[in-house]
């Protein structure tokens, strides 16, 4: 069964066609990689899934419900979490507080007024937050400010913030961009472990090493259109993909 289905989506910016009749079916439980050269429309497509952009035409359905015109926070409440290209975390808050925010969002909804209880005495939230920090290996840093973390740790934290909400769909926008090889491998390991939770994931990635170690299915996007789709091994040798990547130096 597909968790996310994209039908004939078009999106233009000032006459430039960023997405051209895109169709995509993301199977539940799969790790679906979207690859393609710079400017292929990968990020634009992702932004259509989270409510940042609204397609000009076409439909985006998540679990049978249209996502068009729904605000980002409502889409998150429906079960879609997102990791950004540059980790977006709360730099002025401690790691524990960082994870508590999405935990509160999951438990109390988009708005609730809890102005009188102490957050540190909310054992339900604290337990959950500490547990997830343990999972990603950041528990000993729980009381330091998130802004002072290394990039790799920031990414871990951001993942923890997404995972604590038990999302149905996790969107990863270049999760290893700008990382050292060691950090990249750590992140791959972490993502593989998350895979055991059975969360459906969409990964946008440049690094083919990451794609082939994680993905169960690959869609290749070029000039706003899906030009090829299939298992990672098949995509490796596909001439259309080679051409899109100008000789396929990456492959």
């Amino acid at each position: 069964m597909s968790i996310l289905s994209v039908n004939n989506v078009n999106k233009s910016f000032a006459g430039l066609k960023a997405l051209n009749q895109v169709n995509l079916e993301v199977e539940e439980g799969s790790v679906h990689a979207i690859i393609g050269p710079n400017g292929a429309g990968k990020s634009t497509l992702l932004n259509c899934f989270v409510g940042r952009l609204i397609p000009d035409t076409g439909t985006v359905n998540f679990l049978g419900q249209s996502l068009l015109g729904i605000t980002p926070h409502a889409i998150n409440q429906a079960g879609v979490a997102r990791v950004f290209q540059t980790p977006e975390i709360f730099g002025d808050l401690t790691l524990l507080e960082n994870v508590k925010i999405p935990t509160l969002a999951k438990r109390d909804g988009a708005f609730s007024l809890r102005a009188w209880s102490r957050i540190d005495q909310d054992s339900l939230v604290t337990d959950k937050a500490e547990h997830i920090l343990e999972d990603v290996g950041l528990i000993e840093k729980r009381d330091i400010l998130a802004g002072s973390l290394s990039r790799g740790d920031k990414r871990r934290l951001e993942l923890a913030m997404c995972l604590v909400q038990d999302p149905k769909l996790l969107l990863l926008d270049e999760p290893t961009a700008g990382m050292s090889r060691a950090d990249t491998n750590n992140t791959i390991d972490l993502l593989k472990r998350i895979g055991e939770r059975g969360i459906t994931k969409i990964v946008i990635e440049h690094d083919m090493h990451v794609v082939f170690s994680l993905a169960t299915k690959v869609s290749v996007l070029a000039q706003g259109t899906v030009i090829a789709e299939g298992a990672p091994e098949d995509m490796k040798g596909d001439p259309r993909v080679q051409e899109a990547y100008l000789g396929g130096a990456h492959l």
Binding site: H73, F90, D92, A115, R118
Partner: peptide, 28 residues
């Protein structure tokens, strides 16, 4: 009390990063 409450923490988070806030399921 407000500062130490969930509300206070959420307000601090809004100050820290509105973008992350929007994708965290909270209506700012």
């Amino acid at each position: 009390r407000i500062t130490r409450s969930p509300l206070g923490t959420i307000l601090k988070a809004i100050k820290s990063n509105q973008n992350r806030m929007n994708y965290t399921g909270l209506n700012t």
